[in-house]
Design a protein around this nucleic acid. Sequence first.
DNA 1: TTGTAGGCGTTATCAG
DNA 2: CTGATAACGCCTACAA
Lengths: 325, 325
Amino acid sequence: MATIRDVAKLAGVAVCTVSRTINNNQNVLPETKEKVLRAIKELDYVPDELTRGVFRKKVGIIAMLVPSIRHQFFGSLAYHVEKELYVKGYKLMLCSADDQMEREQEYMRVFRSNLVDGVILCVTHLEDSVYENFGKPLVMLDYQVNEKIPVVVCDNVMGGELAAEVFIKNHRKHVLQIISESDKPVFSLKRHVALRAALEAAGVAVRDTIINWNQYDFVGYQDLSMSLLETHPEIDGIMAPDMPAAAFLKAAVRLGKRVPEDICVVAFDGTYLTRVNTLQITAITQPLDLMAEKIVEVISAQVDGKELEESLYIFPPTLTRGETG
Amino acid sequence: MATIRDVAKLAGVAVCTVSRTINNNQNVLPETKEKVLRAIKELDYVPDELTRGVFRKKVGIIAMLVPSIRHQFFGSLAYHVEKELYVKGYKLMLCSADDQMEREQEYMRVFRSNLVDGVILCVTHLEDSVYENFGKPLVMLDYQVNEKIPVVVCDNVMGGELAAEVFIKNHRKHVLQIISESDKPVFSLKRHVALRAALEAAGVAVRDTIINWNQYDFVGYQDLSMSLLETHPEIDGIMAPDMPAAAFLKAAVRLGKRVPEDICVVAFDGTYLTRVNTLQITAITQPLDLMAEKIVEVISAQVDGKELEESLYIFPPTLTRGETG
DNA sequence: TTGTAGGCGTTATCAG
DNA sequence: CTGATAACGCCTACAA
């Protein structure tokens, strides 16, 4: 790999002239510039972004840490985030904690070593102090450590209420909600509180099942849903994230239940997992494109040293009517 | 952010002593080491991996360029790749070309700027010379430029034949295969040649529909499948990648066709998209875990300057019997 | 065992 | 407009 020195030598100019040519382009005689560009082409020279990064204290990479790349929700979110980042000239470094705390910790360490300019955190199992003392631009998705660390999140209360409406309109009596276990007061818990409140006010019974994210893949959800529906045949409505929702739909159909007459399924998130099924699943859809836009706006503003006006950005979800409720 | 100098000052030693403490740990008096470690902790010092990278000419990051992060196939593959990379101490930088050549090109440029140690390429729309003159460790997934650039791929011929068997056993007469358009002689085309050969030998008619990856999302596939099945009611078998396969299944059911009696669906890839449906889709499953293992082995061997014994690694797919054929 | 000096590839400063 | 020179933060000789 050619260095800037090689280019300078070949072009017969000083190193800094090459540097100027690559960067500002100011104060370089057109013919000198021409010579330099020819040498660059000749040597197939590409500036070392690593070294540049050392100097500028900025590499142009934003990291995004997710529980697992496999989850379609994060795949979709990452898709939109990457798109927005690209427009601003950043590259995305997508990292998967693989649902392990140890790896989450290791990644947080790596992020602090200047390999990235900022971090989008979709997973927050570590101690608050880790985030408080992180020392680099941060955006979180489901948990607010303090007012200094911005959060972009969908309006979970509204989401829970939208779901409740669906169940009420369908005259449900026993609704089951699948709750992801959490060691912290994350925003997504609010949807469950809201759903319960709205349903109980309407005289509907609500049952909670708490699950561990890292314990289930689709097959696991399938087993869980089968046994739950068998044990509790009274259940006539379910709210769950997309993947478990699909599993419950599958289980319900297998058990001979009619959908939506016997059982309603409402998926929370609304990725295309809710559409691939023969029956389209009714969903509370998070506006991932808008959220991604805000996430990128917030993280890049911080990288540029700007002050943020708010620290909490809430986006309303929408109800996507499907055939399951 | 504290630098190595701050640590040295606080610990009352020279900079290089700190460096040695962080790295080798050789030839440092236990008590000196102790002092240094205390200072590191005190200052919450994290070495600047950027600078280290400049020196070592290695950053510990491997990039993976995919057509689009949204595609579950690449999400799953990335999941396994990341897992293997992590074990070897590498971080993954997952990049999405978003099905645009321009972005593919831009990423290839960035990759050469030393921000990554090697690249896993799942998308290869550029001129061969770009890959030939890349100058960094490379692994490709579906296209062999030359014998110097290693390829990890699933046995597409075998995959096509496995699919053909399914159709033949089900006594199909008119099979449709969905082919991704390609400007290059990629390996995945072989599955279609193999399927056609095997089916025609058995007297089964084969129809091809060529699609453009970047033209369809699930809704697009749904429209396509609907119109194709309506226009060609004689079709009684379909081979397609997971997502279009799911779309065809949905369309078939909507059109009142019985599955698998009236129409068989075989998905190629076998990600969990084939499992979330009420009917599990029969699939030709690529061994992504094994492939990822090999990919990482091959890329890291190159980063370490080792010579590769082979340049083509082919993995047999397996037939996952579902309920659609 | 520890410290000093020089270099990695760039860029900014300040002469010329 | 262009060229030395120092600096970024770290690491490896080589010297002490």
